[in-house]
């Protein structure tokens, strides 16, 4: 036994001296990626941090003048920007709640023996794999007041969805729910199928009611995975751009990413938009931090 260990150690050190050392290989494998991400993600952000303290406009040749914290001060005191954040919050709440209800509900229904279960699950997952911008565009036809099939199927006559300021945000959220409920379903299904059967059998023997079983057994055990789905979808919904931008141009659907896009690339207020980008970035990083904590927690189980 001891000799075997000896030879293996011996040949390992020989292997190390033959080729590159492990540390060299580790650095060769990892450093290019880190550098690439620093050059193309972190450096641009430092660059834009600099611009966020200036009145720079990318559409003119005028040199940028340092204005200190003025951009940040003005943005944080701008009621219109806060209105954009409020629209975003409303969108996140409606959309993520809808996805959790539909996704978790479908997962509960699917979590039993069903003919063609694999095929049905794959078909249900299709929407989230498709391009938001391209499929979202087609929803314009589905929502059309005069010849859309949604109004026809629901018998709503010529009800306005996208041209109606009160309805447009909900219409965008409905399309988002259609696309992303499958994601919540997929994760919930993984959580549900991991609940040990014997817990349900024990509950049945104890004559526990369906509500008791659901709230005391199912939900607590699925909660960590469901939380991952909720945080991830919250983060994505907070950043949403494609769908709302393509479906409508209502002021009531101007989520923060759209405001940022317009400020930067239509109004060319480059310095100011860099400052707004930083405000958004800090919020996203805060959610990311929570998300990663949950990911690691589930991983460790």
């Amino acid at each position: 036994m001891a000799t075997v260990v000896m030879t293996s150690l011996d040949s390992k050190s020989r292997a190390a001296s033959r080729g590159m050392s492990d540390i060299k290989i580790r650095n060769l494998f990892i450093i290019p990626t880190i550098l690439f991400l620093i050059v193309f993600n972190i450096f641009p952000l430092i660059y834009s941090l600099g611009y966020s303290f200036t009145d720079f406009r990318a559409s003119t040749n005028a040199p940028a003048a340092f204005v200190g914290l003025q951009n940040y001060r003005e943005l944080l005191n701008d009621p219109f920007i806060w209105a954009n954040f409020a629209i975003t919050a409303k969108y996140v709440i409606v959309s993520v709640t809808g996805q959790v209800v539909v996704g978790f509900g479908t997962a509960m229904l699917l979590n039993r023996e069903i003919p063609f279960k694999g095929l049905i699950t794959t078909l249900l997952l299709l929407p989230m794999m498709l391009s938001m911008a391209v499929v979202g565009l087609f929803w314009k036809l589905l929502y059309d007041p005069s010849f859309g099939i949604i109004n026809y199927a629901l018998g709503l006559g010529s009800f306005e969805w996208l041209a109606n300021p009160d309805m447009a945000l909900y219409a965008v959220a409905i399309t988002d729910i259609w696309m992303w409920s499958p994601f919540v379903m997929l994760l919930s299904l993984a959580g549900l199928s991991a609940v040990p059967r014997h817990l349900y059998e024990a509950a049945a023997i104890d004559r526990a009611g369906p509500f008791y079983t659901f709230f005391r057994i199912t939900l607590p055990l699925v909660a960590p995975i469901l939380m991952i789905a909720i945080i991830f979808r919250t983060m994505e919904a907070f950043k949403t751009f494609d769908l709302a931008y393509i479906l409508t141009s209502q002021p009531t659907t101007e989520v923060i990413s759209i405001r940022l896009y317009k400020m930067a690339f239509q109004e060319w207020q480059t310095g100011r938009s860099c400052a707004l980008a930083y405000i958004v970035l800090i919020m996203v990083l805060a959610i990311t931090n929570i998300y990663v904590k949950y990911l690691n927690r589930v991983k460790e189980r």
């Binding site: 641009p44 952000l45 751009f241 940022l260 930067a264 480059t270 990663v292």
Partner: peptide
């Protein structure tokens, strides 16, 4: 920390990264 750093680059909103990248 490095792994968190790597993941966090994925979470950046495209429009936020796009402004400086456009200029560069």
């Amino acid at each position: 920390d490095l792994l968190f750093f790597i993941l966090s680059t994925r979470m950046l909103p495209p429009v936020v990264v796009a402004i400086p990248m456009f200029l560069m």
